[in-house]
Design a protein around this nucleic acid. Structure first.
Lengths: 159, 159
DNA sequence: CCGAGTGCTTACGTTAACGTCAACAGACTG
DNA sequence: CAGTCTGTTGACGTTAACGTAAGCACTCGG
């Protein structure tokens, strides 16, 4: 267990890796996470995380053979899981993730295209939301009907 | 093609089945549908519909060996597909469908229980909806950022 | 130096949700 | 009466999304 914490810290903080080699202080964007750390945080298996990587949804750097995730990776993982919770396939999630990239350099044409894709994605999500709202409405109806039946039963019984 | 329409009608309307045998006019709840009819209407395959039946989500009566679906079946099929669109598994859909049943006879205890289940289902759906709204928000952010970048590019170019 | 703990890769197994294919039955249609 | 259409029942194939297991590497505390 002690080794556990140490190991995790070793992956998380390069400064405790090989002393001297990683002395260059990267200005921003530090904070690396280990795979178990992320797995625990999000309540999923290591296997699942590696699977997402196989599918190209994550691309952690390698430190000493082990995977090291940045904050950005962490955010992406969150988006992946949220996408799944929303009922999207990993392929769809990948598609949406591509809309978040570092397109700071893209040509205007490409950026326009991206905006279009985002609009599409938003419309699909909206459709999904409407479906959910329809189901919620139906369930509310069913519930109301049940409760009316219940009220009748109770009234009869009281008499 | 003519045979098609005739066949479909034969399944849909018992009066053109075996003349004389089906002369008793059922008061309400007529209108039967054939499997291809439903498949076309909902844009799914026959195989899928039969599959849902295997899974216990549909239980059409049999007329002459063929499946005959009532309006109620049609509604259920709609719910199934909507459930799927919402990201539910068939098992979850089945669970929800059970909340719509003809519980006109149930004991008050059971009806109470049902109301509870419905509430649960509604809460889960609400969670899903919130997730979708979060994604929509994220996408809107991404879009806004893109558009600002675009505006800058255009302004520079105009100069 | 060794065993525990963590991680990596490879490969095979599994479940859900169908699709595809084959072979066949009944009923019109011409 | 042969052909076409619609429908039925298996059996097998497929894709997605992992789970499980095996075997090896590394690293740290004792």
């Amino acid at each position: 267990m002690k080794a556990n914490a140490n190991r995790a810290a070793a992956v998380a903080r390069p400064r405790s890796g090989i002393p001297g080699t990683q002395s260059a202080p990267v200005p921003t964007e530090n904070e690396l996470y280990g795979i178990t750390e992320l797995a625990r945080e999000f309540g999923i298996s290591l296997r699942a995380i590696r699977f997402y990587e196989d599918k190209g949804l994550l691309a952690p750097r390698r430190i000493n053979g082990g995977r090291a995730y940045t904050r950005r990776d962490r955010v992406r993982l969150g988006l992946i899981l949220r996408g799944k919770a929303v009922g999207m396939s990993l392929a769809e999630v990948e598609h949406i993730l591509s809309l978040y990239g570092d397109h700071g350099e893209g040509h205007a044409k490409q950026l326009d295209y991206l905006v279009g894709r985002i609009d599409e994605a938003m419309q699909e999500l909206d459709t999904r939301r409407r479906n959910i709202e329809a189901m919620l409405g139906d369930l509310a109806d069913a519930k109301g009907q049940l409760q009316r039946t219940l009220a009748l039963k109770r009234r009869v019984r009281k008499k």
